[in-house]
Simulated scan of single mutants.
Amino acid sequence: MATTFIPEGDHQRDYRHALAQFATGITVITAPTPEGGIGMTANSFASVSLDPALILWSAAKDSLRYPIFKQATHFAIHVLREDQFDIAKAFAKDTDALSLVSPRLNAANVPVFDSCLARFECRTEARHDAGDHTILVGAVENVFLNDTGKPLIFSQHGYGTFQDA
């Protein structure tokens, strides 16, 4: 059944449902901390510019990990494979999920891991306030590409993968 609504008040759940109709890839974002590093699952990742190489992702202000990511000067975005659902769920819930991926620290002390489809190592270029999120723009300094596998996708409130046509 089709419906039309204004996305406020009693229609917040409907608005979330409408947004869930758009399929997105799943990423794990990592950043350095004095204790070594932290990570979180995010699907709000997008390319901004090819020249210069810029990407963005959005951090929810109500996340317990938000203060670390908002202040981070560097971060890394790891694009997950279809077989990494458990990793996506672990980073969504647990601030200490890094032990699942055997990370190492890059030159900026950001924890990074190679068990992913692609990784974008970034310097924070800009932060933009955007309602209940902050948009973080990263200047991509290094890319890791592993084109073996299919991406893990989130759509219609569930995880899945891309099917070949």
Rank of each mutant, 00 (worst) to 15 (best):
L100W: 12
Q156G: 08
H74E: 03
I77S: 05
G149T: 02
F120R: 01
L136P: 01
D114L: 14
F75N: 14
S115F: 09
P103N: 06
D96Q: 12
V101H: 12
S155L: 00
E82C: 01
T134V: 07
A76W: 05
L105N: 04
A92K: 11
I153W: 03
D114N: 14
A72N: 13
R65N: 10
S99M: 08
T95W: 09
T73F: 04
F85P: 02
N146Y: 00
L117V: 04
V112F: 10
S102W: 05
A108Y: 06
G131C: 04
V101E: 03
E121A: 14
L80I: 14
E141V: 12
E125V: 10
Y159I: 07
R127K: 15
A126Q: 07
A88L: 11
V143F: 13
K70A: 13
Y66T: 09
D83S: 00
E121C: 09
P103K: 13
T73S: 10
E141H: 08
R127A: 13
D96P: 02
L145A: 05
L105R: 06
E125D: 01
L152T: 03
H133I: 06
V112D: 02
F144R: 10
L117F: 00
F85C: 10
P67Q: 05
R104W: 03
N109E: 01
N146E: 01
P103L: 10
V101W: 12
L105V: 03
H74C: 08
H128L: 15
